[in-house]
Amino acid sequence: MTSFARKKVFPHKLLSLFMLGVWLVMSNSLGFGQWLLGGFLAWAIPFFTQSFWPQSMVMNKPWLAIRFLLLVLWDIVVANAQVAVLIMGPRQKLQPAFMRIPLELKQDFTITLLANTISLTPGTVSVDLQMNEGYLLVHGLHVTDVDATIAEIKSRYERPLKEIFECSNP
């Protein structure tokens, strides 16, 4: 049990900022009252639920994070065009495969981000996570070279995530 004295006033600053943003977008106005109400909720909800969220998220390199976000958004558009072509094309020529991606990431949140990124980008869906053996099982729709694909996912998505969230506390 955490005692009241050890509670932080802002346990998750990024989450609070995100919640305020979502509130303002949802209410669709920037009036003073909405800022007040949204700000109160963005403080109160993380504050009173902080014992459920022991890990605090630290973002080391915000600029790298923005670059990564843009890269992923671009990849999502490209991936969709590719998958659309694959779906419309001859289905006998598709070469599906399961791949095991060994994980270097340690934190739950980062692994979740990696799995989500993999699911949204070119022809791959993450289907299972084996935490104790340390790999992510990924299904690819059309994979010509399994090892090359694994290496690409690791260098393209895992390394930036590791740099953004996990580098300072190895």
Binding site: A79, A84, I87, L120, V125, V127
Partner: peptide, 10 residues
């Protein structure tokens, strides 16, 4: 597993 790709992305 191949069908899984269509809905999640497109």
């Amino acid at each position: 597993f191949m069908r899984l790709h269509g809905p999640t992305k497109a």
